[in-house]
Simulated assay, not measured.
Amino acid sequence: MIRVVLASQSPSRRTILRDGGIDPVIIVSEVDERAIEDGFIGSVGDLTTALSEAKARAVIDRILASTPPTLHDADTVVVIAGDSLLEFDGQAIGKPETAERTREVWSAIAGQWTQLHSGHTVAVLSRTPQSNVSADRPEAEGHDRVDPTDSATFELSDLRSKRSATSVLIGSPTAAELDAYIATEEPFHVAGALTIDGYGGAFVDRLDGDHLTVLGLSLPVVRELVTDMGLLWPDLWTLQR
Rank of each mutant, 00 (worst) to 15 (best):
I2S: 04
V5G: 02
L6H: 04
S12T: 06
R13G: 05
R14Q: 12
I16N: 01
I16V: 03
D19F: 02
I26K: 01
I26D: 10
I27A: 01
V28R: 03
E33H: 01
D38C: 03
G39M: 12
I41E: 14
V44Q: 02
A54V: 05
K55L: 13
A58K: 07
A58P: 02
V59F: 15
L64D: 15
S66I: 08
L71C: 13
V78D: 08
L86Y: 09
E87S: 01
R101V: 08
R103P: 09
E104Y: 02
A110V: 04
G111A: 06
W113Q: 05
Q115L: 03
H117D: 11
S118G: 02
V122G: 03
V122T: 03
S126W: 09
R127S: 01
P129H: 09
N132A: 06
A135E: 14
R137K: 07
A140I: 12
D144P: 06
D144Q: 10
D144W: 15
R145A: 11
V146S: 06
T149N: 14
F154S: 09
L156D: 10
R163S: 11
S164H: 12
A165T: 15
T166Q: 09
V168Y: 15
I170M: 13
S172A: 09
S172N: 08
L178K: 04
D179R: 04
I182T: 12
A183W: 13
F188L: 03
V190A: 03
G192T: 09
G192W: 11
A193P: 05
T195W: 13
D197V: 00
F203K: 00
F203T: 00
R206L: 11
L207A: 05
D208S: 02
G209Y: 13
L212A: 07
L212V: 04
T213V: 07
G216L: 09
S218F: 10
S218H: 11
L219I: 14
L219A: 00
P220T: 07
V221R: 01
V222T: 10
E224T: 05
L225H: 06
V226C: 05
V226K: 02
M229P: 01
M229G: 04
G230W: 15
G230S: 09
G230R: 03
W233I: 03
D235N: 06
L239M: 08
